[in-house]
Design a protein around this nucleic acid. Structure first.
Lengths: 348, 348
DNA sequence: CAACGCAATGTAGACGTCTACATTTACTAT
DNA sequence: ATAGTAAATGTAGACGTCTACATTGCGTTG
């Protein structure tokens, strides 16, 4: 009943106030809180009453200061508007949380300078680990992480020789898998749509992997903006008798699909369409989209485990390759028998 | 050049070590760091050298402990897999960051108990503010926030009489706006698809607002899962001659659209289709989706400002109504003249 | 040259919690 | 009863940084 009025030096009661009220020392209160079995039941009861009376709540900062731990991990992502990243964060948060860690999120807008800037903020607030996307970063990022002696992990990428541990898929292999799906269906003349290369090493690698397609295939690349409109735009720019359009992102593929259909092209009869990422929407488009499912969930899980293991027991963080999987749906099919017979009335 | 070897009591050099090397007291080092103008240029130079030599990096925890501030805000969202939430967080993070705050994210999976649980974790790590979605919460949530004397804001909701400040749109008004768009086009028999009501007060309010539609309109409600498949499923369950399908989420509408098209129904000739949220994809579907654009970006901005203003200058957090906007696109049209005359040959 | 004022730096203790070690208490076994 | 022991609690100081106040030193002014 006694209001906390006697304790509000700056408002909050401390462990010492609790001790005073309960008639014990602050050490005993601390023990009652952290190792209840070491304090007698009677005393514990008195302390609990005192806590209730004073409205004591532990000061997280003091605790962190003593333990030197914040149980906080920082993640830097280019954007939250792409489901690939939000899914990753979802999985990451889930697992970190299970292991008692919190997740701080910072958005970089794919800008390397902003990335370092925000990384510094995160470090200054005490994150114990830093997770970034991809491999191309401002050199200061590595330096800062090292200065603060905080582990730094790159995701969405697998490159064992990188200067920092990478956890993700191998973008080259993945691109090759997608291409293989198309060539196996007989496609040779293939258009490839992709988002901006600048500052996006994942896109870069995928393209590189396709540079020498083999199998007598010939690829033509179309760069565009990474959104539905970009996918649609590529369809308008398409030249030549492609039998397949490979989009290095499902967002592009869905955009392209809508545009193809509104132009009256049939998928896959006129042109096969393949995406990348396996968005939620991709299995519900008409026709359902063939795509490559990236191991995003796994990536979140594995990354979370790796950081936590490192922080909890010092096990070093090893690079880790995760496998992607081609999902063949109805948007890809065999090459039309008469390849030259492409008569499309006033198309595009 | 001298390695940090003399300072690694537990690894890191402290301000005291720097002082020792520079031949000054720790207070002077602290000042050199925080109010450089109060220390002579000569000393400052020596201190900087000492910092470089020792590899000193400030301990965020000690700093936070003294200042009593963490500059960290916690956000609890049901999921990160829905772009409505990730967009909100994107905007929120952006603005918080501009004002010098960090954002900790926790996912609740729309489970109230998990919500409190995670809220406690966030409070225990020292967040200075808590942001949640919607109005229905475990009672402990309010209590805990109060115990820690941390402001708690509900978003995606506007309800000035709520026990906590709300920043968002009025779900009833918004639903009414959508319905008005359809009735203005002459629709009277309307199917309404919505996600699970349990634990989702936003959906609840929208439905309530439609309970008494007026205008001689008659609505039938279909509950389904909140994903593309759910939207598609509703189409299959539809009974009766509806002239319009109103989906209380664009995800449902897009799912429904795909399904309608694969059944050969024309939109909007056979049935008008309206969504809710204005997803990125919604303007690129075929036909583009009429929808209600929710002020998500604004909500992030306004919420961020409100918390920061409160923390920085104590201005109380006031409820705030944000306006939604009907976006009329091609998926909605006038009611067909001969409502019964629906003869479409295997379309698409 | 004394007195003053200001700039630069040092001293000391606070912030709230934890913990190694010391002390007290109570009980058991002889 | 008495030493011995284990359980319960207290004492003191550490964690790293900040800051109010005290001190030092120097230059200016009359």
């Amino acid at each position: 009943m006694t209001k906390a009025s006697t304790f509000d030096r700056k408002g909050r009661a401390t462990i010492v106030d609790v001790g005073r009220v309960a008639g014990v020392s602050d050490a005993t209160v601390s023990r009652a809180l952290n190792k209840p079995e070491t304090v007698s039941a009677k005393t514990r009861a008195r302390i609990e009453a005192a806590i209730a009376e004073t409205g004591y709540v532990p000061n997280p900062l003091a605790k962190a200061m003593v333990s030197g731990r914040t149980y906080t991990i920082g993640a830097l992502v280019p954007t939250l508007n792409h489901s690939i990243f939000s899914k990753f964060l979802h999985a990451l948060e889930s697992d970190l949380s299970d292991q008692g860690y919190n997740l701080v999120v910072a958005v970089t807008d794919a800008d390397r300078d902003r990335e370092v800037e925000k990384a510094k903020k995160l470090l200054a607030m005490g994150v114990e680990g830093l997770i970034v996307s991809g491999l191309s970063h401002n050199a200061d990022l590595l330096r800062e992480a090292a200065r603060f002696a905080v582990p730094l992990i790159a995701t969405s990428y697998y490159e064992p020789s990188a200067p920092l541990p990478t956890i993700g898929y191998d973008n080259k292999i993945v691109a090759t898998q997608a291409l293989a799906h198309l060539t196996a269906l007989g496609h040779r003349r293939i258009a490839v749509a992709h988002g901006p290369v600048a500052g996006n090493d994942r896109t870069r690698s995928r393209i590189d992997a396709l540079a020498d397609p083999g199998e007598g295939a010939s690829l033509t690349f179309y760069e565009t903006t990474l959104d539905y409109a970009g996918g649609a735009a590529v369809v308008d720019r398409l030249e030549g008798p492609y039998s397949a359009l490979l989009c290095l992102s499902d967002v592009l593929a869905v955009g392209a699909l809508f545009q193809l259909r509104s132009l009256g092209k049939r998928v896959p009869e006129d042109i096969s369409l393949m995406g990348f990422d396996d968005l939620d929407a991709s299995q519900f488009t008409v026709p359902p989209l063939s795509t490559v499912r990236l191991p995003i969930q796994d990536m979140g899980r594995v990354t979370a485990r790796a950081v936590c293991d490192f922080l909890d027991s010092g096990s070093p963080i090893a690079p880790r390759l995760l496998e992607a999987q081609v999902i063949a749906r109805a948007s890809t099919g065999a090459v039309p028998l008469a390849p030259g017979a492409s008569d499309n009335p006033r198309g595009s």
